[in-house]
Design a binder for these strands. Structure first.
Length: 422
RNA sequence: GGAGAGGUGGCUGAGUGGUCGAAAGCGGCGGUCUCGAAAACCGUUAUACUCUUUGAGUAUCUAGGGUUCGAAUCCCUACCUCUCCGCCA
């Protein structure tokens, strides 16, 4: 949510920002018009209320003194009706205005590359190299089935297309990765949290998934609840409607959760194997920070996500998203793209974003600054990282010519010392 | 799922129709005292919005409606919390 005053004072900036993000449902002109109406009504109704407050004080005084106040009461009865009618108008305007405000995307940061789609994304740096494998590397769904650790057909049998089952060393590998990542982030000062995977619409609104992404999420109709598409939602919203002490900033949290995504309209694109599924696990980091150093916090968050991949010896590249590729709520975002040598593609494995005060405003999360004033903190989050794409990359990049898969050194302690899957 | 009780400021807690934005205490902040600290004492301590913006006004006692000239206070609804019973990994 943007500050209404900011929109009022910079309508053209907001329009440009929305256009660069290709957000078509954002109607700045309608907002300005309603804002004007709203202030006019407020002006009138407050005037009447001031009048009434004076009159009721006078009535109270007269009653106490035993004097008659019938005239004043009769006069105020009319004023009361007028107030009720104006209050009603105001409520309607407020409702419409808030509805429109929810559709205003966050402004892209000035450093974000301008461009309407991913072709304008900028390669920032690369780390490591593609593995040297002088044989035909099988894609993860083939090597996984061969080793008996991945069962895609079994998953379809249970839940339909777009799910996966891991077995034996595969299931163990995922658990090892989760522990490896959580341990790393906790050691680096992130507090581990365990959160619900089902949340209310209000919570979804807080981080900006609603109203825009309604169709991308699973909704439990009987109780009007939603399955989380990312841990960002429950973890960030832990601070919904909270007032934070400035000394407690920055807040750094990490959580492992499943993520549920309908992937509506994504059929046919990257649908093989584990790359695009309806349910996958992810380790997610969330930061709530002081606005003064939030962009430094973004860089350290990127570094934290990179550390996971570096520790596993996996080649990746860092890109910065163009405005048109930025999410509705983000001001700036880096992607980590991990090389997978079987399908010979870079896989988006982590998205690290800063939201400035967009989410904290929606959540009404504030902190008290040194002047004792309330201020909106900045929120950030980043995957650290997504399991359903990390596992394929390992199965492919660490694949050997004899059909076995080596286990990265860093994971071996979590795999009972095993060095390979065979 | 059934029955009951309750939701007041950062916290505890008073207030059942008329200067109540709200007593008191705790906590916080500033000061006096002190070499310093503690104690004691004094003062101070919400947020948002509107405007004719060194000032004035309006709103806010979980939320949304209603009654009334006037609602923290009465009525209705929703949500949440607690207690007891039932069910249950």
């Amino acid at each position: 949510m943007l500050d209404l005053r900011f929109i009022r004072e910079n309508p053209d900036l907001v329009k440009t920002g929305a256009a660069n993000k290709n957000e078509k449902k954002c109607d700045v002109d309608a907002i300005l018009k309603l804002d004007e109406q709203r202030r006019e009504i407020i002006h009138n109704v407050e005037h009447l209320k001031a009048e009434r407050n004076k009159a009721t004080a006078e009535i109270a005084r007269k009653k106490k003194a035993g004097e008659a106040a019938d005239d004043a009461i009769a006069a105020m009865r009319e004023v009361g009706k007028e107030i009720a009618s104006l209050d009603n108008d105001l409520r309607k305007v407020d409702e419409d205005l808030n509805g429109l405000l929810l559709w205003v995307p966050n402004m892209p940061h000035e450093s974000a590359p301008v461009g309407l789609d991913e072709s304008a994304n900028v390669l920032v740096r690369t780390w490591g190299e593609k593995p040297k494998q002088d044989f035909e590397v099988l894609p993860h769904w083939e090597i996984g089935e061969k080793l008996g650790i991945l069962d895609l057909e079994g998953a379809t049998n249970l839940s339909g297309a777009g799910f996966y089952v891991l077995k034996g060393a595969g299931a163990r590998l995922e658990r090892a990765l989760i522990s490896y990542m959580l341990d790393m982030h906790v050691a680096d000062g992130y507090e581990e949290v365990k959160v619900p995977h089902i949340v209310t619409a209000d919570t979804m609104r807080g981080t900006g998934q609603l109203p825009k992404l309604e169709d991308d999420m699973y909704r439990i109709e009987s109780d009007d609840l939603y399955l989380i598409p990312t841990a960002e939602v429950p973890v960030t919203n832990l601070y919904k409607k909270k007032i934070i002490d400035e000394d407690d900033l920055p807040i750094k949290m990490v959580a492992h959760t499943p993520c549920f995504r309908r992937e509506a309209g994504a059929a046919g694109k990257d649908t093989r194997g584990m790359i695009r599924v309806h349910q996958f696990d992810k380790v997610e980091m969330v930061k709530i920070v002081h606005p003064d150093n939030s962009y430094d916090e973004l860089e350290t968050l990127v570094a934290q996500a990179e550390k996971v991949l570096q520790g596993l010896g996996l080649h990746y590249q860092v890109t910065e998203l163009a405005t048109g590729d930025l999410s509705f709520a983000a001001a700036k975002c880096y992607d980590l793209e991990l090389w997978a040598s079987g399908i010979e593609k870079y896989l988006e494995i982590s998205s690290i974003s800063i939201f400035e005060s967009f989410q904290s405003r929606r959540m009404n999360c504030r902190f008290r600054n040194k002047e004792k004033k309330l201020e909106f903190p900045h929120t950030l989050n980043g995957s650290g990282v997504a399991l359903a794409r990390l596992i394929p990359a390992i199965l492919e990049n660490y694949q050997n010519s004899d059909g076995t898969v080596s286990i990265p050194d860093a994971l071996q302690p979590y795999m009972n010392g095993a060095t390979r899957i065979e």
